[in-house]
């Protein structure tokens, strides 16, 4: 199993970090998956599911069944190495790491739901924190 798929690593991270999905509705899910896995036939991904404010994020592992299987709202794809760095780096700041990764092309953020749904689910701030240009970098 790839090291980034260890749920405990992500749990440690989120314990130190607080809830990066704060403000997003309960039940919202973002997934993390290794690029090398995406090319294969079977793969697992790490899923953050936002619970209530007191509980924070629940970490789970789930089989990838296609982008639009409805398992996640956003999906981050990167080399397993990069994902591991994101969840183990100090100082702890996964959103910053994701933002930098997206900017430099080492992390891809796929949007699996239409914008309106994401807005209704309260994703606006989360997406903006990823530094994503709303209308591309034109």
């Amino acid at each position: 199993m790839l090291a980034y798929l260890e749920q405990s690593v992500w749990r440690d991270l989120l314990e130190k970090q607080g809830n990066p999905m704060h403000g997003v509705q309960a039940g919202a899910r973002v997934a993390f998956m290794a690029k090398e896995d995406l090319a294969g036939t079977e793969a697992d991904m790490i899923v953050w599911e936002n619970m209530t404010d007191d509980i924070g994020i629940a970490i789970g592992t789930q089989a990838f069944q296609g982008f639009h299987a409805g398992d996640a709202d956003l999906m981050f794809v990167a080399d397993a190495e990069v994902l591991l760095q994101i969840c183990t780096a100090t100082p702890v700041d996964p959103i910053k790491k994701l933002r930098q990764g997206i900017r430099h092309g080492t992390v891809l953020c796929y949007f699996l739901r239409p914008k309106r749904e994401l807005l209704d689910m309260g994703y606006e701030e989360f997406v903006e924190a990823l530094g994503l240009p709303l209308a591309g970098c034109l």
Binding site: G66, F67, H68, M75, L108, C109, Y110, F111, L112, R113, P114, K115, L118, V127, L132, P133, L134, A135, G136
Partner: peptide
Amino acid sequence: AVPQTLPHFRP
């Protein structure tokens, strides 16, 4: 079927 990397498009 490669999803988009910005929020405002269709699946």
